[in-house]
């Protein structure tokens, strides 16, 4: 599968990474090459094989319903590029 620069722009937009037209142009053959590598997988017969669900046999443990965390607003906001009045601030969103 080879991807063109329009596809690259679409993927980049889904991934929220701004790309210039020149970057999209340059990325297209790179990504195509990687996709070429991974597409070898299509030749493997996987009939009747279940996708791997757990890397090492293990059970999902469940946690008790107890409040053990929170009340750490200073820590939560400490690294924020912009925090005001106890909130994170972002450019205005219009819904």
């Amino acid at each position: 599968m080879s991807v063109d620069s329009a596809t690259v722009r679409k993927i980049a937009s889904l991934a929220r990474i701004a790309v210039s037209d020149a970057e999209a142009e340059a990325l297209a053959p790179e990504l195509s090459k990687i996709l070429g590598l991974v597409e070898q997988l299509s030749e493997v017969d996987t009939t009747g094989i279940a996708p791997l669900a757990a890397v090492v046999p293990n059970h999902l443990r469940l946690r008790d319903d107890v409040v053990t965390d929170g009340d750490i607003r200073d820590k939560i906001l400490k690294n924020a590029p912009q925090a005001e009045h106890g909130f994170f601030a972002v450019p205005k969103v219009i819904e």
């Binding site: 929220r16 990474i17 701004a18 924020a80 590029p81 972002v90 969103v93």
Partner: peptide, 19 residues
Amino acid sequence: VRYGQRELPDGAGLQDMYA
């Protein structure tokens, strides 16, 4: 939004800021 670097071009909305 919560940590690290932010790039906010003039007039950028939220999704532009992400990108």
